[in-house]
Write a protein that binds this DNA or RNA. Sequence first.
RNA 1: GCCCGGAUGGCGGAACUGGUAUACGCGCACGACUUAAAAUCGUGUCUCGCAAGGGAUGUGGGUUCGAUUCCCACUCUGGGCACCA
Length: 820
Amino acid sequence: MKEYDHKKIEAKWQKEWEKKEVFNASDFSKKPKFYGLIEFPYPSGEGLHVGHIRSNTAMDIIARKRRMEGFNVLYPIGWDAFGLPTENYAIKTGISPEKVTKINTDIFRRQLKSIGFSFDWSREVNTTDPKYYKWTQWLFLQFLKHDLAYKAKININWCPKDKIGLANEEVVGGCCERCGTPVEKREKEQWMLRITKYADKLDKDLDDVDFLEKIKLQQRNWIGRSEGAEIGFKIKSSNSNVEDEIKVFTTRPDTIFGATYVVLAPENELVSNLKSKISNWEEVEKYIVKAKAKAEIERSADEKDPSTGSGQAKTGVQLKGLIAINPANNEEIPVFIADYVIATYGTGAVMAVPAHDERDFAFANKYNLPVLVVVSGGDGNSAYVGDGKMINSGKFDGQDSELVKKEITKFVGGKWVTKYKLRDWVFSRQRYWGEPIPVVHCDKCGVVPLSEKDLPLKLPKIAKYEPTNSGESPLAGISKWVNTKCPKCFGKAKRETDTMPNWAGSSWYFLRYCDPKNSKKFADIKKLKYWMQVDWYNGGMEHTTLHLLYSRFWNKFLFDIGLVPFSEAYKKRTSHGMILAKNGEKMSKSKGNVINPDDIVKTYGADTLRMYEMFMGPFDQAIAWGEDNIIGVRRFIERVWKIQNKVVSKTVFDTNMARTVLTTEEYKKFETLLHKTVKKVSDDIESMRFNTAISSMMILVNFMDKIEQIRKSDFEMFLKVLSPFAPHVTEEIWAELGDKKILSTEAWPKADPNKMKETEITIAIQINGKVRAETFITSDMSEADIIEYVKRLEDVDKWIAGKEIRKIIYVPLKLVSIVV
RNA sequence: GCCCGGAUGGCGGAACUGGUAUACGCGCACGACUUAAAAUCGUGUCUCGCAAGGGAUGUGGGUUCGAUUCCCACUCUGGGCACCA
């Protein structure tokens, strides 16, 4: 018998598939199309991660199944290659990011090919290729044209020692990741994309897509749509009669009679506007400076209150000299600033109702502010946030709190409004390794976009990749590149030196895959019409609120201006669990716990690695890497390899083979199991339960192991369902059995329901909820027959003899439960 | 602090709508083959008990003829976070 030589077999079929272009998608084919997508990898210096293999194999199995089901499948791959690690590596080593990217993508490509993924390599894209980013720049100009891109002053993280802006990721515990210096906030003008304009659509259209519920929930929470009231609180001050007003936003206007103070965010403009009327300005200013210095994450992460050991330690300062008027009851109440109120949400000010809001309650306790209950139902010891009958609320007393919200808003002269948590997207970076933003600044004409014929605006070659001391990108130092002519008036102008974030290229790559080589357009609309939407997109949960939302936003915008055919980019979205290192930590180069898949491919083979990663646990759950179980999958594949020697053609097949008692009846049992397995594998792939699909195939193989002969057609049926998991070895056996055509293009088998029926079924018998016996029944017995039969069984009789039967429950084909 | 998951043998895990808990795999033990070992194959493997039977799905309650599954409270653990008023 031929040895199972995975190295030879895998290399052979990878070459064969490539030569025959088995996996190339064909535009406009008459077959139904299927577009399966995985998040394209960032080609890091660490090489392919075992986590990539897990998620890519999952979609590969689906893509391969769809192909066998007769679909024209697009399963593309590319490189999301702009980004910080490559740039930081360039700063450290002086090697150009371009070169580093080339080296890394070469490694990734080789590794991915060695696993046997059925990617259409002819459509490979790379976000750092000028032919690609020409269109990223062009798309940015469309945003600019439609007033969805604008400049605004934004606080950024600033390292005063390195004199550069830092990404959130580079801030560790409030300090610069590299030098440990405490990070400051600095105002900088940034390009913004107006994603908030799409907040409503991005939220509502989730109703119509097939995303996992937890993904929808997370996006909804992120967008944070909420309806509430905007209400003005008049301000009185001791040294002025001019009327100012604090606008607050609240979802609980029904509690307004219980508002005993008002709180502004420290950054709220009104605070400085009212400076002249605030008697303790020095104290207030100190607090503002302190609050601004705190990282947002620190402001949001609560510390335990040392006095109570629980709850929230809130800080704030009263704005002395100011008095607000509660419009519901005309009570005079104090005004505070506190950093638990944030400037960017709502109106940057809240009315505080300590009796019915936990944060207000904690704050009121700390500063000894009155707590006035206006909705009954609480116990008085904590904030009651539920609904109930209203009290202490004037003419609203006795009404249901949840029903009067709009009416009470009207009563105090407020407006009913919708607010979103979502903020506009900061779209510029002061970095080198990103798409240059294609505009110039002209003294006469202002911001002038480049024209399409000037795209791509290529990154110039430079010697040093560090940002400049002024916080500008290194591009600012290339005067030859910066100084240019205004495309409008041809006068002197300067180029924008900011680049785009790494999210830019990934916001539309799924569109480029439909038409990756087009030099006239970002993608041809006819091809987009054929391939879009993405039928199934699998990715990590960590991309739910940024990449996934951003790309939905881009697609919606492009739909609105008529450039893409669907408003939603993705029909279906699922997510995978992360693979962690043995100890449960994340794998990373710095921890030295990264697993190199090359070694496993060499020792066990790609088929074993693929199957092992699918078998190790539930696909949607995180799992710690361990190699103890790999051997089990390898043994399984070797067993399948050996079984090919028992395969005989139909005419020679003998159901009465002496050694194995494969009588007609026994064969029927096998046939039933085979068809059940085919059904289970088919179903499990659709619900991404790859681990149980594999275990059911193992059960079938264990059965086949014990039989002397296998009918060829039966074995082939099994090979087909195994092939998406272990494509190389199945392809080889398929050829060994004398089949000329490639297995990957064969038709997916259908399980025959008639052959899955079992004639004899084991049922359990419970007495008072405990299993006491089991017995066989045949499928033609009626319920009454079964119950009578069961009652007469010896094992049952000893439990029920002489007792009164109170109840008998029959669960079809499962059990009989007798209560005595 | 908030939100979303998870907790089942020695280990990874299975049990799909409440219906025989521990499938499948690893490991381990014993046996066969072998001069021997590896590989392979076979048998066994939650726990207490001689048995009848009892106890086990993180902990404590509840609903039910019946709960890994549903409800309440809690512990531990993974992930996310923008105190969202």
